[in-house]
Design a protein around this nucleic acid. Sequence first.
DNA 1: TAGGGTGTTAACAATTTGGTAATCATGAAT
DNA 2: ATTCATGATTACCAAATTGTTAACACCCTA
Lengths: 226, 226
Amino acid sequence: MVSAGKKILIADDEPDILEIISYNLQLHGYEVFTAKDGDQAILKAKQTQPDLIILDIMMPKKNGIEVCKILRAQPEFNDTIIVFLTALNDELSHVKGLEYGADDFISKPISPKIMVSKVNSFFRRINKPETTNAIELGDIKIVPDEYMVYFKDQPINLAKKEFELLNYLASKPGRVFLRNEILNRIWGSEVIVGDRTIDVHIRKIRQKLGIDCITTVKGVGYKFEI
Amino acid sequence: MVSAGKKILIADDEPDILEIISYNLQLHGYEVFTAKDGDQAILKAKQTQPDLIILDIMMPKKNGIEVCKILRAQPEFNDTIIVFLTALNDELSHVKGLEYGADDFISKPISPKIMVSKVNSFFRRINKPETTNAIELGDIKIVPDEYMVYFKDQPINLAKKEFELLNYLASKPGRVFLRNEILNRIWGSEVIVGDRTIDVHIRKIRQKLGIDCITTVKGVGYKFEI
DNA sequence: TAGGGTGTTAACAATTTGGTAATCATGAAT
DNA sequence: ATTCATGATTACCAAATTGTTAACACCCTA
């Protein structure tokens, strides 16, 4: 099994769903933890440090989106994959979820078989593009090896922090990165910088690139999109 | 012996294999270190800075793929050859291994004789392009054989360190080399030199070449481009 | 042992950068 | 319409980083 040993936390208020899913994931070599409401999800997440967290949106105590927002604000969950369980066609939840730093969605109802294959694919996705390769989206090419960005093949010179910030945002196009996440990742969790620092860097990137590829999500963070 | 003095690290949890292989490699002039699990492999790799690392895939503590992934994430192991020992026909390991930056595979069971000849061939493969091939980019020609650089066919005399530095940067045009990478490669990991040493050498190269082919990436390193 | 080439360092200059404060713009809420 | 919260913008300054120069030590070779 490719992803054996990975830890998964599932939070849902329906015991049946919890049991079926966790049983099937365990069969495939995953270590599974469960939570039946939002508060418990946060607690167990801290205790077990899972690689993947599956959150039902509708839960008692705290709903999935709140949980996600809280977890994403902490550096230790920077690289944790967070996905939401949503009712089919619940567009609103999808939008809200992405804004709060979710990596993907799984629509209910869901068969155990599909669930397992989805989970497998999450880990495959995470493992692969970790390190080196260039990101190319539309007319924009980001080449970490060269610390260089190209717009329509025109090289654009970004300073170190600017480049790192853009590269981070572009690592998951469409996904919103919370201001906290950005601070943790680009500045490090110990460093303390002022509120406006991110804005200023975003501005410099926008200015140098000349095109609008970074979208502001008010009260939340920023995302990269073409 | 072509590759005498090269350092090799072997990690395998079976003492017999470890002993037979290391004995035979030592006979052929290699300096051999061993590790019996993944954690020890990482530790010894850092201590001994081997030129070649042979990793059994199935090991306690950390398996070979994990070890490879961790080592490859560090610049000092950029140029280290990493090969896996795998069970015959273990396709999955092959695929995963290559993804994490393995250079090749050796299938078990293996005879000492074949092992030695394989190891020799690794070093032959690696040694060659370093010494023989001339790099030609635009008006600049770099000929490692002669320790000489030509600009529009005019020979330019660079000192040894200057030449090695230029040659290293030019080995991957466009790619940024971190100051640390440069130090490790040109000065070696044990040597400690001052902050300004690289700059001074860069300056001498720029001065002698007369053209601007080395770009500074502030806070990161240097890169060669035409 | 004198001299040229080489590698390193130290000191200072020049440059880039990253961060902040002050101010302005915008949109949502009252 | 006014207020409040949030982000955008701008200009400025301090710190970090690199460039430059000169001096020194070292090793060959003559």
